[in-house]
């Protein structure tokens, strides 16, 4: 079976006011249906650039992203994007924010209403439909944006450092929530983060990029059993993986550790 999504020889240069930035270099990646992939790397390594190219919002300088057999050249209905911070529209209440994709896509939200209601209950936002974003905490806002994304049932979900602005406790909570939603829905998730334990906690495979220009440093499979718990992140095995991945990020190459 061919993979759901592939990134082929992705290269990206872009111009800024101070010159040209070489963000990605010849990156290849294959993603299976239903996989949870975390893309991890130091800041400025091009991991967000890669994700935005996968979403069809940005173009690659060369190479391509293929989803379901066709190249992604513009945003596609099978793809849902979750942004850094919640990116809710402050002039709309929660319900209007969640229905925003339906409005843009001009589809009737009525058939999706039971599903939205269930999702709101699941993330603990039932009863908050009439609240405006400014009345919600950062975690609640990001949960609302997850419901907004899942509301129209995309096949692939791209998440761009979604919990970077949250405190550690809220972040743990959100990671558990995402794991649960992923296990229930069987979506394919590609999740960009610079937090090593978050990546290991969530991912089936952790894709580590090198500093700019972003190249593939190594792909670490994570075979911890699911559902994973926060306690597991304190176990020696988990910590060993964290150290191994951190070392890879620092050096840009993967060197297998001899057991010490």
């Amino acid at each position: 079976m061919s993979p759901l999504m592939t990134v082929e020889r992705a290269t990206k240069h872009y111009k800024t006011q101070t010159g040209s930035v070489h963000a990605l270099e010849n990156l290849n990646l294959e993603i299976e249906k239903g996989e949870f992939i975390c893309i991890l790397g130091p800041s400025g390594c091009g991991k967000s650039t890669l994700l935005w190219a996968m979403s069809g919002l940005h173009e690659l300088t060369s190479g391509q992203v293929v989803l379901n057999g066709t190249p992604v050249t513009s945003p596609r209905p099978e793809i849902g994007m979750i942004f850094q911070e919640a990116n809710l529209l402050p002039w709309r209440n929660l319900e209007q924010n969640i229905l925003f994709p339906f409005e843009i896509k001009k589809i009737d939200p009525a058939p999706a209403q039971p599903r939205i209601k269930r999702l709101l209950e699941e993330v603990g936002l039932a009863g908050f439909e009439n609240k405006f974003p400014r009345e919600l905490s950062g975690g609640m806002q990001q949960r609302a944006s997850i419901v907004r994304c899942l509301s129209y049932d995309p096949e692939v979900i791209l998440m761009d450092e979604p919990f970077g602005a949250l405190d550690a406790f809220t972040r743990d909570e959100m990671n558990l929530l995402i794991q649960r939603l992923w296990m229930e829905t069987g979506k394919t998730i590609i999740f960009v983060t610079h937090n090593v334990s978050e990546a290991i906690f969530l991912a089936d495979r952790v894709v580590v990029l090198t500093p700019r220009p972003g190249r593939l440093a190594h792909i670490f499979p994570v075979d911890l059993p699911r559902p994973r718990t926060i306690e597991m992140t304190f176990e020696p095995d988990f910590i060993r993986s964290v150290i191994e991945i951190k070392r890879t990020i620092e050096t840009g190459v993967y060197t297998p550790q001899a057991a010490d």
């Binding site: 945003p75 209905p77 990116n87 409005e103 843009i104």
Partner: peptide, 20 residues
């Protein structure tokens, strides 16, 4: 970011104007 959000749902230029 909000314009990108609308675009990710396939918004037209007119929709970006009226909705964002």
């Amino acid at each position: 970011a909000k314009i990108a959000l609308a675009k990710s749902y396939g918004a037209s230029t007119l929709q970006i104007f009226t909705k964002i």
